[in-house]
Design a protein around this nucleic acid. Structure first.
Lengths: 160, 160
DNA sequence: ATAAATAGTTATACTTTTGTAACCGTTTTA
DNA sequence: TAAAACGGTTACAAAAGTATAACTATTTAT
């Protein structure tokens, strides 16, 4: 139990350190190498995972206020990267689905914004890269798990 | 070699997924639970690691334009979390050092902004927490390693 | 059938971050 | 010693993100 808490403390220490490092690696090249703002790219990212989500679900997954989601989706639609679909079951709901162009563009963008970090990774030892690959996979999976679980993100998500 | 590239691809995939999840977890509670903006907190964070840095080094480590660093440091000085020190060797340089109050405040803030994620972590199995602890440690260390290495961050850092 | 709740948009104001350019004082270099 | 480079600040403009309230259309609940 006490052991658990020590581990949790170290997890949080680590995540708080990792966050600005990733921001540094990605945010700048999103701006300089794409015509999307970071927010639109995050939306495209979740849609590349879930394929289709409603406006509310997007805001929930990314903790964005609904009006912001609207404006980001507008941009992605202008770029034909996503499309709006009306839900026949409940006509209030607007589902957003990533298009094939959106998927292709997202892959291209991922390559472009990761060029710098890729060059640095290439200089590391093979076993260190392998360790980072496995470790980042675990971090990603567990974070996604506890993120999905979170239906009660007070301000943006309603309890289902 | 080809093996390496596959691993690098997966690292990048994972990091691109992790970034918005961390943003979601931290950015909102930084705003709601502290009187600092995210930028000031990142500056405080690097200073809690390196203890003392020049203005340029801060901008370099966080990829921030120098004028932005100036305004963030002004805020932290008003809060007495950091102090300016003139460098006797080179009077152009202004070093910024975290104060004891700054260290204490940073620890408090870390506790506050991690409350939500802590609650979710507590629901996980002990072995999963342990795995996340070790994995996030590796990710942090390797990212810090390749981040420090980077003296040539084009727009904000000059080659030393 | 009416009232309340929900999903999404519009409008607006504000904070934070980014990006320049001009400037001052100091140090380096030629 | 004059010119160039450097570290930092000031001033300003623009982009991006946050936060609310008011509104429409639709669905649910009483």
């Amino acid at each position: 139990m006490s052991d658990n808490n020590i581990s949790i403390d170290s997890v949080i220490e680590n995540l708080i350190s990792i966050h600005p490092l990733l921001t540094k690696s990605f945010s700048k090249s999103i701006r300089s190498k794409t015509n999307l703002n970071p927010g639109s790219l995050y939306v495209l990212g979740v849609l590349s995972v879930y394929d289709m989500l409603s406006m509310s679900e997007i805001g929930c997954k990314l903790s964005m206020p609904k009006p912001h989601v609207t404006s980001l989706i507008d941009k992605l639609i202008m770029e034909k990267m996503v499309e709006r679909l009306f839900d026949p079951k409940d006509r209030r709901i607007i589902n957003v689905r990533i298009t094939n162009k959106g998927k292709d563009d997202f892959n291209t963008i991922k390559l472009e914004i990761s060029q710098e970090i890729r060059q640095k990774l290439e200089k590391l030892d093979a076993d260190k890269i392998e360790l980072l690959s496995i470790s980042s996979q675990h971090v990603k999976e567990i974070l996604m798990e506890i993120s999905i679980e979170n239906k009660t993100d007070s301000s943006y998500c309603k309890i289902k």
